[in-house]
Simulated assay, not measured.
Amino acid sequence: MAEQLRIRRITAYCLLGICVLTALLITLDLDTPVRTIAVLLFLGTAPGWALISYVNVRHLSVTWISAVGLSLSAGLIVAQLLVLTHAWHPEAAVLGMVVATAALLVHHVLRSRPRSVP
């Protein structure tokens, strides 16, 4: 169990790095292939992983499959909202998703830290 928490904590740190990189590339409006890769990697994994990490899934493969499915679903819902409201601002939508995802990932990192024994 401790090993699983360590792996989840490391994954959360890596996904937080992707969140920060994505936010920086969008905010600085850098037009580079790295931005495309970072945004696709973020939208395909991070939001779903931030949500599924609160569910006690025993198999890592099920966690990742669920994370990708949830991420794609969240992206579709946000895109549909942008279309329905006639407010097509994809950069702002991705930044909003980054902030929400990062907050969940920070909470996950803080709650999965090893407890110090006095």
Rank of each mutant, 00 (worst) to 15 (best):
G17K: 08
R58P: 11
E3G: 04
G48W: 02
A46V: 00
P118I: 05
H107S: 11
V117G: 00
L15W: 02
L84W: 05
L81V: 02
A102E: 06
L16W: 01
V39G: 04
L72F: 10
L81D: 00
L24Q: 06
L25F: 06
R111M: 10
D29Q: 15
A92L: 11
A92P: 03
P90W: 05
L60G: 02
V109A: 10
L28Q: 14
V39Q: 03
D31W: 09
S53R: 01
V34A: 12
M97G: 13
L70I: 03
H59W: 10
L43M: 10
L110T: 04
P114D: 13
T11V: 08
V106E: 03
L28M: 14
A23K: 04
A46N: 01
C14G: 09
F42A: 00
V109Y: 01
E3Q: 05
A93Q: 03
V94S: 01
R115D: 06
Y54A: 07
C19E: 00
G48P: 09
A87T: 12
A67W: 00
L24W: 08
P118Q: 09
V68A: 07
G48A: 09
V68Q: 08
L30D: 14
R113S: 05
P47S: 05
H108V: 06
L104E: 06
L21I: 14
H59L: 05
R6D: 07
I18A: 07
I37W: 09
C19Y: 00
W88Y: 12
L72Q: 01
T27I: 15
L40M: 06
Q80N: 08
V109C: 04
V34K: 06
S73Q: 05
L28K: 12
D31P: 09
T32R: 07
R9N: 14
A79S: 04
L41K: 05
L16H: 00
P47C: 00
G69L: 04
A12Q: 08
S66V: 08
A23E: 14
Y54I: 10
R8Q: 11
A87W: 12
A2R: 09
A67D: 01
H59C: 11
V117F: 04
W49S: 11
L40F: 10
G44W: 00
L28P: 04
W64N: 08
P90V: 06
S73E: 04
A79K: 10
E91Q: 11
Y13I: 15
C14M: 13
L84P: 04
S66T: 14
G75V: 03
W64G: 09
I77V: 15
N56A: 15
T85G: 14
A50G: 12
N56P: 08
R6T: 15
V83G: 02
A92V: 06
V55N: 10
D29L: 06
P90Y: 02
V55A: 13
W64V: 15
I7G: 03
A93N: 07
P90G: 03
L28S: 07
P90C: 08
L15R: 01
L95C: 01
N56M: 12
Y13T: 07
T85W: 12
A74L: 12
L25C: 06
V94N: 05
A23G: 13
R9I: 10
A92F: 05
L16V: 10
A12L: 01
P114W: 01
